[in-house]
Nucleic acid binder design. Structure first.
Lengths: 229, 229
DNA sequence: TAATGTGAAACACTTCACAGCG
DNA sequence: CGCTGTGAAGTGTTTCACATTA
């Protein structure tokens, strides 16, 4: 009945549930059980029921969940029942790729402002959005009421960009720079870090040909921590 | 002295430690305490000591850790003391961006094969690597001894690509497609999913202007689950 | 003396198992 | 009767706190 403390890990799973439910909607599926939904996603039925229970009662006993109602409920919980303006900082290779990505739009986000440091890029346009000077962030972001920033600058300038985003009133940051950024507690960060992901995957690879030349005993590979089934 | 069961979450933190240590090396820092390292990254000193303890004794009591030794040790644990060939599947907007990304190279990975379905793209070259027909994955990947795949195809073909990667002997997959893929337990997957990341961030945004029109009580925002300090 | 490595405690998350409801 | 929602149990992860050692 209340939400005294919803674990962040639950919040991070909600978009996956939502996406799956929307696909089911498209397929004309009207009702789904926690068992079914879990099987599609690779999590247990119990986890799904527990996750939803943080937000109220979405289901019907003996029946399951109404796909549309559940999807709309999750969208509302995540505040996705509106469009959020986002600021993109950085217009190099990566920044441009993000600016051109059509995939946030259909999911409640719009890149409404783009900032670059390189004067060559300032004035460029993407889809009607003009690339502005990074130095103007401080004025433009509060003025536009933007609360989300995407960092797509090199690692060594990511912290200073983060600081300026926080000063500008941003509350959430999606960080593509390969560096950890430190922010005050009222600001949330998610890292997009493919290199780290690859490097951690490497641990699990067989090395038959290679000698196990390590000083450390890593011969016994751990089991999976990922959701099973 | 042994590594009976190393949690995946520990493995996922190692690349971040490694990157931070390499930067310290570049700065000429030779020694670091768990306290210092933690302060840079945003995790507690106790966590850092616990994480390293899974792999042996890296530190010197009263002194801290030798930066070079520790970095090399982590690299060896992660099997990053060699270069891994990677197969990239998909050569649309996203696939091309990944193919051109110079950032895996310096980090023990090389995109050694690129596969596309669209005949228009087959034969294209990136940095000497020719884009091949997806249909040949099954032969080429085992032949080249590739054990890591990067999926950069649309969501609706991601599962079939994953299946074929697994059939081809791949043990690790970096999935950029906005869909959960199911793989057997001996294969590891990491999702790169900026849209889900943004959607989960949205939950934490203030909505002063907006009415709290939700049926569900989400008025009390949870505290942070992210590392503190 | 300063900082590691680690039992033990605390905390967080997941799963079990079943009462209760449609 | 089938499936949700949830106490309680079980597991996993983090932090405490301190003996230990260079």
């Amino acid at each position: 009945m209340s939400s005294p403390e919803i674990p962040d890990i639950v919040i991070r799973r909600l978009p996956v549930y939502l996406r799956t439910l929307r696909r089911m909607q498209d397929l004309g599926i009207e009702s789904v059980s926690s068992e079914d939904l879990g099987a599609h996603i690779g999590v247990t039925a119990a986890q799904i029921r527990r996750d939803f229970s943080y937000f109220g009662r979405f289901g019907k006993q003996g029946k399951g969940y109404d796909v549309q109602t559940l999807a709309d409920g999750i969208a509302r919980v995540l505040k996705l029942d509106r469009c959020w303006d986002v600021a993109l900082i950085g217009f190099g290779q990566l920044g441009r790729a993000i600016a051109h990505y059509r995939g946030f739009e259909s999911n409640s986000f719009r890149i409404a402002a783009i900032f670059a440091r390189n004067p060559d890029h300032i004035g460029d346009q993407v889809d009607g959005v003009v690339v502005m000077d990074e130095a103007t962030m401080h004025e433009v972001i509060p003025e536009m009421g933007i609360r989300i920033g995407i960092i797509a600058v090199p690692a060594d300038s990511s912290q200073s960009v983060a600081d300026r985003l926080v000063d500008s009133g941003v509350q959430a940051i999606l960080n593509y720079a390969p560096a950890i950024i430190r922010v005050p507690p009222h600001v949330r960060v998610r890292e997009i870090d493919p290199t780290s992901a690859l490097q951690s995957l490497s641990f699990y690879l067989d090395t038959e040909g290679q000698p196990p030349d390590s000083v450390f005993d890593t011969s016994m590979l751990p089991g999976m921590t990922e959701p099973r089934r």
